[in-house]
Design a binder for these strands. Sequence first.
DNA 1: TATTGTTATACTCTATAACTATA
DNA 2: TATAGTTATAGAGTATAACAATA
Lengths: 173, 173
Amino acid sequence: MIDLPTHRVVIMSAMTIDSTAAADRVATGSERLWATTVGGDLSFLLARANAVSLASVTGALAELGLKVRSYSVLAVAANGVRPSQRELSEFLRLDPSQIVALVDDLEARKLVRRVTDPSDRRSKVVVVTAEGLRTFERAREVAIDAEHDLFEGFTADEREQLRDLLRTLAAER
Amino acid sequence: MIDLPTHRVVIMSAMTIDSTAAADRVATGSERLWATTVGGDLSFLLARANAVSLASVTGALAELGLKVRSYSVLAVAANGVRPSQRELSEFLRLDPSQIVALVDDLEARKLVRRVTDPSDRRSKVVVVTAEGLRTFERAREVAIDAEHDLFEGFTADEREQLRDLLRTLAAER
DNA sequence: TATTGTTATACTCTATAACTATA
DNA sequence: TATAGTTATAGAGTATAACAATA
């Protein structure tokens, strides 16, 4: 697993740091910069929050030979929704050619199979194998653990709020 | 500018889409997949929301020859906080060598200068030039416009909530 | 010895266009 | 003629290690 913060640190706009034992776990040396205009930009905060989360999940999944992307493809397939590659491409916002590479990899490892859709033979549906399902279940556990650590400082309410707000944003174009 | 959604679309867990004129602006064809486990993952939502925001800001800044990263460096410098490259590296979560490349580019375009810190001659501080400040101000406008469009469907309260939650997360190691 | 910035290099990711097979 | 998937390839971004100057 990756190193994760154990306590929540709140940084106010005015640059006051709520000083707990965790205060020095924040990126050292660059605290001054949070007072900057970018420090308040939603797009910047989104990018940085994502970088933090990505690093944590990536680290957690590495032990299973998965990356965030292959995990996402596997997870959608494991839900039994039988996504076409085109659907995966839109949902994950990746180019169709990148989906090919991801599915190639998962298929070579026998975690998923490509099934030609009989009602439209151009389209290929990605289905999980028994082994893929087992791998997914383990992967899901470590991913949830990582997320849990990451959101340790948040209340259940705050997590729900964040989920709703992000869902709205994520659903945009 | 980039094409942006004009209305907010809420996607519920149960897969009901609040159907307004904007409903068909949502990624077509993959609505089913939102009902999936990943569709509720905070890390996934964060990644997708970031992708959406990134695309919008990237598109907006392109007309000024800036990317999100060079814009961030320029913005911090333009705030007059005199960041060292090391500080930029921590704040932006980029490798020091990447900061070198970004500052090289901005310096070649005379938007910033490197100034050796007299109190520690190893360290170089990035300061904005007059021209850099002008460029930053225009860039800031288009970036704010893009952000404004992106968060059009949000109330002021929701934006504040999101900012607070993301700030907490972004400040984590 | 440790740290800041720099260079070099290999690797991954991303974007684009062309091709095939089906519709 | 249009769409789903595939291939190839060039470009951008990323990670790593080694090095010079300074502390």
